[in-house]
Amino acid sequence: MVDLSVDLGFLKLKNPVIAASGTFGYGLEFKPFYDLDLLGGFVVKGLYFKPREGNRPPRLVETPGGLINSIGLQGIGVEAFCREILPELAGLKTAVIVNVCGEEEDEYARVAEYLGRHQGIAALELNISCPNVREGGRCPAQSPEATYRTVKKVKRVTSLPLITKLSPNVTDITAVALAAEEAGTEAISLINTLLAMAVDLKTRKPKLGNVMGGLSGPAIKPIAVRMVFQVARSVKVPVIGMGGIFSAEDALEFMMAGAAAVQVGTANFVDPDACLKIIGGLTTWAEAHGLKKIREVTGSLMA
């Protein structure tokens, strides 16, 4: 029997596979497909304090091996989440992680503080990296200073562990990662989507209503692996890797490059039970390679 558990220090997971925010609804959407307790954890869709309308459609466009989305964090807001959804998630034996958003730095703190007063949340993921909510795809994760300030503000108001989610749309990802670590984040997750665009030749218009969006899917995996590798070498906190993971082999690549755990995103749309297949595939791979503990894969890259 392979031991799939991983220990992030602040959080023990039964396996390293976490469903990624923005691709897993509020969790309940996947209940018809499988027992959520089988997951290492899942991250619910990003929450602002107030409900949010999201961007004008069309919001999706497929590109080779990828998907550009410009959803714009449509959602019910943190109050409705705590009132209507969180009780439904109570009793789950998996890590429920809540993705926290903000129009400005203080809103992140308000949302985190509100969530901190509720039971059943294993950790917060700070979404300082969504490319779809500000003009030109800007976000706090593009600046080490803004990253530091946001993490610090949230740390001050909650004792819940923080996972800071970074953007690939930067010049030096390690500078941002170090800033998050210095501000006290318990872990780093990366990468969020890559700022992208597609054009309709017939109409000469952008294919997305919001012009630009975030690219995800297999197309971005090599960039994500590279950035996980760079960050894992630079920081001491655990790194959670994501970006185009569709198979156990993809997950293992991230782990070898330094990820302690992984998140699975776009694959959930194609196969609602993608996470389960990947968890199963990790066991198969470990058995085939005579490995007793999957956590031994983390950082095992020969470089």
């Binding site: 923005g22 018809p32 459609p57 959803i71 959930n268």
Partner: peptide, 25 residues
Amino acid sequence: SIMGCGFGACWGCVRKIRRNGQEKY
């Protein structure tokens, strides 16, 4: 609509709908 998942997880396929006196996606 263009759809990502088909079962409510991605919020990609929205249209503007008027319901209970409010317009929303």
